[in-house]
């Protein structure tokens, strides 16, 4: 990596980490989604006193067991929620974060006319593109991981408090956090950064991320209704393919060398 690229990466990282509002904005929704909501869910379920016939059908589909008793039922529901629905949020979070970061770092520079100044320096457009992507991808992944850690700690405290077995993230989680999230981050960053060459504003580029968010929301709904059941193997293979595709797309996008003047 050239000195120029490194200088831009450091400048952008400093800028984003310096703007507390941006960081707060990026962390607020994920923390609500993955820490507060699940905690409430766990507490609510553990206090529930009735049979949950509707959920039972879904659980039976997953674990293949019939006639489970209430306490065990509750554990199954919570575990189902934690291991099948929560991971999908971790596909949503990096999309959101990378969209915010990349649109701020790239379109922000264009709108404030600092991009033109960068164009006059001895750095290829492609390298500026790469720098912007590296910042967005790295920071999204770090924040994503931070949210994951906070979530794991808090949920375990809550589980302990209500007397439920601890939550230990398994292989599926590992795949989601390391592979699926990364693929999604790469593709959404790439799209937003290259979209910023055509669209006029931060908002417009951010809207383009809808193409990624929609299928993920479909996945969330699917998980809730028990419509789509993804096994570890399928998840791993699909994520890997997705990752390869996203890297290829990014490579393709970065080959466009036009100045967006």
């Amino acid at each position: 990596m050239s000195k120029s690229v490194l200088a831009i990466i450091i400048k952008d990282l400093k800028y984003i980490l310096r703007s507390k509002q941006l960081i707060a904005l990026m962390l607020l929704v994920p923390l609500v989604l993955t820490v507060i909501m699940p905690s409430i869910f766990v507490i609510a379920i553990s206090n529930l006193q009735v049979n949950m016939e509707d959920f039972k059908a879904i659980i039976e589909k997953v674990v293949g067991k019939e006639n489970v008793e209430l306490a065990y039922q509750k554990q199954l529901i919570i575990s189902y929620f934690l291991n099948n629905i929560l991971p999908v949020f971790f596909m949503l979070i990096p999309t959101m974060m990378s969209t915010i970061i990349s649109s701020n770092s790239f379109i922000g520079e264009r709108e404030k006319h600092t991009l033109e100044t960068l164009y006059y320096s001895p750095i290829k457009v492609r390298d500026i593109f790469i720098a912007k992507n590296v910042v967005s991808i790295c920071l999204s992944m770090i924040l994503n991981f931070a949210v994951f850690i906070v979530m794991t700690v808090i949920i375990n405290i809550v589980l302990l408090a209500v007397g439920m077995p601890a939550f230990i993230p398994g292989l599926k989680w590992l795949i989601v956090i390391l592979c699926t999230s990364l693929a999604i981050t790469i593709i959404s960053t790439g799209i937003v950064v290259s979209k910023s060459n055509k669209s006029d504003s931060v908002e417009e580029a951010q809207q383009s991320a809808v193409f990624i968010i929609l299928p993920i929301i479909g996945l969330v709904v699917g998980q809730f209704t028990g419509f789509i059941m993804i096994s570890k193997l399928i998840l791993a293979i699909a994520s890997l393919i997705f990752l390869i595709i996203s890297v290829m797309v990014l490579k393709l996008l970065s080959n466009k060398n036009d100045y967006y003047a």
Binding site: H113, E116, Y119, Y120, P122, K124, D127
Partner: peptide, 16 residues
């Protein structure tokens, strides 16, 4: 362009 820019310094009204 990247090579040429090593030898030149440019100031324009819109480059902030």
């Amino acid at each position: 362009p990247a090579v040429a820019h090593r030898y030149m310094g440019t100031l324009t009204e819109t480059a902030n």
